[in-house]
Amino acid sequence: MTDMTKDRVEQLIDYIMKKCLWQFHSRNWDRERQNKGILGMTTALLCDEPVDIEDPKERCYWVDAVVLADAYRTRYPWINTLSKDEIRELMAALHARLDHLTITGSLNAELTDKNY
């Protein structure tokens, strides 16, 4: 990852950390699903790709994604200059980073509890 990508990922991460709550569900499996669902939708929105939001669960990811994508476009204007491939690459890096911070690298000992 280039330094510039790294820096951009950190900007995007910072926004999620300060403004969002969806990445902090209480169990690993939830966090995986949430991160994937919402960042996946966000990527699609940023790339102007269609999303399937018939299922309420998907729709719930989508609402968080819409607000996130809008915030990214407004707060980080550089994102509007990227190509779709660049966005996909950036968002993949963001997803990996978020998974690291909230799941694989998380120090939260409760994430692996079997029950809610």
Partner: peptide, 26 residues
Amino acid sequence: YGIPRLDIDGFGFEPLSASLRKIGLF
């Protein structure tokens, strides 16, 4: 029951606005 969970913030202009917007979007 398959009811989705949407975490919101009722405190603060920006978080509350984002929260209302998300519910509206849903």
